[in-house]
């Protein structure tokens, strides 16, 4: 288990103090994939570096397993770091060394014999699917292949934890997916706890068991991925959900006063969010039967969070004001979230 207790990190720059991390407390369970999502500048890179103390917190405590890292001396800290793998946005491979030599690099202090190290390198290359690139140099590899080498290198000392700092941000969408599958496989087959920071909703949505959302150095919301994203509490969480769907486009259209989103007097535009079991209810047709309300669908989308469907529907409702209110209460009673986005 990784535990952060009231971690703060303040940088002193020429422009003054910058509070990169503000009073963050988190618990990351053994064997889970934990996502920390935030827009750039939210402090997530600094936070992840506070876990292995690449950045020493200004105050607060960091525990990895039983050990309080913030209480260790440099020498002991280095030993603990060997059991915490880390991968980076720009891979950080050693250019003068081959793929095999890169993976061998962290094994220098492992005390293993040459044969054992070679066997280890071979099995890691098999795990990441790069056996034929053994003697290639990083400059001869694609971005996705470089990240695979970095993952193999991070796993060389059999870590319990793997920290991923924007590990897919420099990759195209297809490659991102393949790296995420590999990380999921590493998590499931080796039981390694993964802490992953990203600004991409797609990354969190696919593989994270739990998430924390960061804004201006603080964690503003956290919990089970499906819960957090199906019932977002904070504006920033909604913003993230919108980046992954076309809902944002609707807002733009409203702002532009586009014909599609222009309302007639007495009309309301609402966003309905369905999750899980209520997604099957014949809601729209029921509204017109029971309340005499006309419902016009503007936009619809089904997204999957860790395999669970989340439906989004933008509709304009027109009818008697009293009936509209009743209809909204009814929708609400079904467990479908209703948000009036224009009226």
């Amino acid at each position: 288990m990784i535990r952060l207790e009231q971690v703060c990190k303040t940088f002193h720059t020429a422009a003054g103090e910058v509070q990169a991390v503000r009073n963050v407390s988190l618990e990351i369970r053994d064997g889970e994939v934990f996502g920390i999502i935030g827009f750039s500048g939210a402090g997530k890179s600094t936070l992840v570096r506070c876990i292995n103390l690449l950045e020493r917190p200004t105050s607060g405590k960091v525990y990895v397993g039983e050990e309080e890292l913030t209480a260790l001396n440099e020498k002991h800290l280095r030993e603990v770091r060997r059991k915490i793998g880390m991968i980076f946005q720009h891979f950080n491979l050693l250019r003068s060394r081959t793929v095999a030599q890169n993976i061998d690099f962290p094994l220098k202090k492992s005390g293993l014999s040459r044969q054992e190290r070679d066997a280890k390198i071979q099995s890691l290359l098999e795990l990441v699917g790069l056996t034929e690139k053994r003697d290639a140099y990083p400059s001869q590899l694609s971005g996705g292949q470089k990240q695979r080498v970095a993952i193999a290198r991070a796993l060389a000392n059999d870590p319990k934890v793997l920290l991923c700092d924007e590990a897919t941000s420099a990759l195209d969408p297809q490659t991102t997916q393949s790296i995420l599958r590999l990380l999921k496989q590493v998590n499931e087959t080796l039981g390694i706890t993964i802490v992953l920071i990203t600004h991409e909703m797609a990354v969190v949505k696919d593989i994270c068991d739990r998430v924390a959302i960061m804004e201006e150095g603080a964690v503003v919301e956290s919990g089970d991925t499906v819960d957090v994203f199906s019932h977002p509490k904070e504006t920033i969480t909604r913003d993230f959900i919108e980046t992954a769907s076309n809902i944002r486009k609707i807002h733009e259209l409203i702002e532009e006063k586009n014909e599609l989103t222009r309302l007639k007097p007495g009309e309301q535009m609402v966003l309905l969010t369905y999750s899980g079991p209520n997604a099957g209810e014949p809601l729209i047709s029921y509204l017109s039967h029971a309340f005499g309300i006309q419902a016009n669908i503007i936009y619809g989308n089904i997204d999957f969070l860790k395999g669970k469907p989340i439906g989004k529907l933008v509709v304009t409702l027109s009818g008697d004001a009293g009936q509209l209110k009743k209809a909204r209460d009814y929708i609400d009673s079904l467990g479908v979230e209703v948000e009036v986005i224009q009226s």
Binding site: L54, I84, F88, F105, N157, L163
Partner: peptide, 11 residues
């Protein structure tokens, strides 16, 4: 980044 990665590896 290379220096940072090496520090993260415990060097």
């Amino acid at each position: 980044g290379l220096i940072e990665a090496s520090e993260a590896m415990g060097f």
